[in-house]
């Protein structure tokens, strides 16, 4: 399957310089993204999902964020070795990104039309003003915004959160990117809008064959939209598998915990919700050995002394646990 990978992330290590010292927010993360498919990245808040996606875009906050090592390969070239100028042609053109917070992601003093049109202006310089206008209206129409001719004249504050996220999607998709990174695109929206946005992304993907990296902390959403899943824990990959394998035979205790934390309809009502006890270790003072040890039911001595390797247990199934065979 690796042969049709459109984007490969290999051994990504990203760190931040903070006042208290250097922290590694992402450590040794690798995955492939395939054309026309959706890769989900899931994990608790602070596990490094956004940092991973910002690393791919090379959008880490300067000067504190820093990619220590790894490769991000698009078209056989390593994006991390590209000069900054060349990255301008990749961003918004080959790889686009939608952010977590639609309320603040648009420029408050520019009209919607200008903000969409800017993408065309940057990447398709031969388009004239009229063509840009028509293409922008078409994009708004595509993402399901009613009366696009009118909306295009409006400012972000005149739009609801769901509308703004649609505009963000329209901007991201304007130049038909090969890869769309969606960093929790629906977290800030209410549930019905969330479902609409997910539906929209799926249908747009079908027609354009783009690959999507879908970031969320919601396994329910993963089940709905993804083909493959990466489960992250404290900056590392805990488990990586196809959606089917992950839901059918989760091997990492953390994945199991996450899955059992999803409330089910056939549970007796008013039962206590399952949660994973304990909390994520501080990235400044990680334990030796497995990062999940303090919350794990299966913890034993070697989990405390040596970090588990990421083992391949099936064609596309990887797990980062010493005891995956027993559980």
């Amino acid at each position: 399957m690796a042969d049709d990978a459109i984007l490969q992330v290999k051994g990504l290590v990203t760190s931040f310089q903070t006042e208290a010292g250097t922290i590694r927010a992402v450590e040794d993360v690798s995955f492939d993204v395939h054309k026309g498919q959706t890769l989900g990245i899931v994990g608790e808040s602070g596990c490094g999902k956004s940092v991973t996606s910002l690393s791919i875009m090379r959008l880490l906050p300067k000067p504190f964020g820093h990619i220590e090592s790894g490769e991000i390969i698009l078209d056989k070239q390593d994006l991390l070795k590209l000069p900054a100028k060349k990255m301008h042609h990749i961003r918004g053109n080959r790889i686009s990104m939608i952010f977590q917070e639609p309320m603040t992601a648009l420029n408050p003093v520019h009209r919607i039309g200008k903000q969409i049109g800017e993408s065309f202006m940057l990447h398709q310089p031969d388009m004239n003003e009229q063509a840009i206008y028509e293409a922008s209206v078409e994009m708004l129409h595509l993402v399901g915004i009613p009366a696009p001719e009118q909306r295009i004249q409006e400012y972000p504050h005149q739009l609801s959160g769901g509308m703004r996220q649609r505009v963000m999607i329209a901007i991201a998709l304007a130049c038909k990117p090969d890869i769309l990174i969606a960093d929790e695109p629906t977290t800030a929206l209410d549930v019905t809008i969330q479902a609409q946005i997910l539906e929209l992304m799926k249908s747009l993907q079908k027609t354009s064959k783009m690959a999507i990296i879908f970031i969320t902390h919601d396994l329910g959403v993963i089940a709905e939209v993804c083909d493959d899943v990466v489960v992250m824990y404290a900056g590392k990959i805990a488990e990586k598998a196809s959606v089917h394998d992950l839901f059918q035979s989760p091997r990492h205790p953390y994945t199991k915990g996450l899955l059992s934390a999803i409330p089910k309809l056939d549970n007796p009502p008013k039962q206590k919700l399952q949660t994973i006890e304990g909390s994520v270790p501080d990235l400044m003072s990680l334990p030796t050995g497995c990062r999940f040890q303090n919350r794990c039911f299966y913890m034993e001595e070697r989990c405390q002394s040596q970090p588990p390797p990421l083992e391949q247990i099936d064609t596309d199934h990887f797990v980062n646990c010493h005891r995956w065979k027993e559980i």
């Binding site: 959008l59 990749i90 961003r91 918004g92 686009s96 952010f99 603040t104 800017e118 940057l122």
Partner: peptide, 22 residues
């Protein structure tokens, strides 16, 4: 440092243009 500047750069704008245009 705001979100919309990140959006602008994610669109493919250089940092300079993001400063002056946004």
């Amino acid at each position: 440092a705001s979100d919309y500047i990140r959006t602008a750069i994610a669109k493919g704008l250089s940092f300079r243009s993001a400063v002056f245009k946004h």
